[in-house]
Design a protein around this nucleic acid. Sequence first.
DNA 1: TTAAATCGGACCACAGCGGTCCTGTTTTCT
DNA 2: AGAAAACAGGACCGCTGTGGTCCGATTTAA
Lengths: 154, 154
Amino acid sequence: MLRITKQSDYAIVLMTHITSSEDRWLNASELATQAGLPQPIVSKILKLLTRGRLLESQRGVKGGYCLARSAARITVAEIIEALEGPISVTECVEESPGECTQEAFCPVRGNWQRINHVLRDALSEITLEEMARPSTPALVTLGSREMAPDVTAR
Amino acid sequence: MLRITKQSDYAIVLMTHITSSEDRWLNASELATQAGLPQPIVSKILKLLTRGRLLESQRGVKGGYCLARSAARITVAEIIEALEGPISVTECVEESPGECTQEAFCPVRGNWQRINHVLRDALSEITLEEMARPSTPALVTLGSREMAPDVTAR
DNA sequence: TTAAATCGGACCACAGCGGTCCTGTTTTCT
DNA sequence: AGAAAACAGGACCGCTGTGGTCCGATTTAA
């Protein structure tokens, strides 16, 4: 568990295909064929990616999709968030007071905030360009990131 | 999204309560009161944690639960896995061939494996002892961990 | 004008999650 | 021995969200 949705998974595959042939506009059915996915799903996902400003779309006969910016400047986190909304591990997050069985006596709250940041930043470190390379050399190093302002050495 | 389930969330809260009073056996209704959660849910979660070898249980009148080992040697990842099964971000994982729209031409597969490991290891680094401390000093440093055997500097 | 494509929805089946409850079994206390 | 207190192990169910399909409207090129 702790899964991303299937559609997010598909989205990343589709984005890598678009990255690979980044010269021309690809339409939904071309991409569906390339990825081996049903065309209606592909259309749905491409629409969401366009809404999330990760793709640009061109309507009409010679229309299709292409990246809104370079693959090096698109992150896995952005793709997931375009499909699923903000990444957060727990519900207890982002200032929704009056939820957590009343007050903030909950001991784990602050810690979850940090964990959220770490995981989100981990996925923000991975670019589409890296995902598009089959056997990526420098991926998810994650090194020496510190979340808490008062972090001490372990 | 990318959420853990509510029950995993509850589980961690319950585990921190057990950690705080680690001298005696706490029963389900005591813990339910402490955490402000309905007692049936608490019972269900405690059973799963016991199955996952994170708690030890004592039946009978003076029964209850206590930690199976010290809080410093129980990780957040273990708690989540006791409730939800193995942590994996994507379905495409763990050698299930003949799934991924046939063959392993999928370009992102290898990369997801690494991301899975990074997130799982991140949650494996955080101990229950750290979660039990309200404002944890040294949490989720995650520094200088390398997943791929051929990682190069960025 | 027509055809090809995206856009924006509505729509539905189904699995999984959240939550309750019931019947055993074990243990302690009287 | 018997009763009460607690865990063990399920069955069960409502509901949300996901996966997936489809349709009409709009845009664009030929």
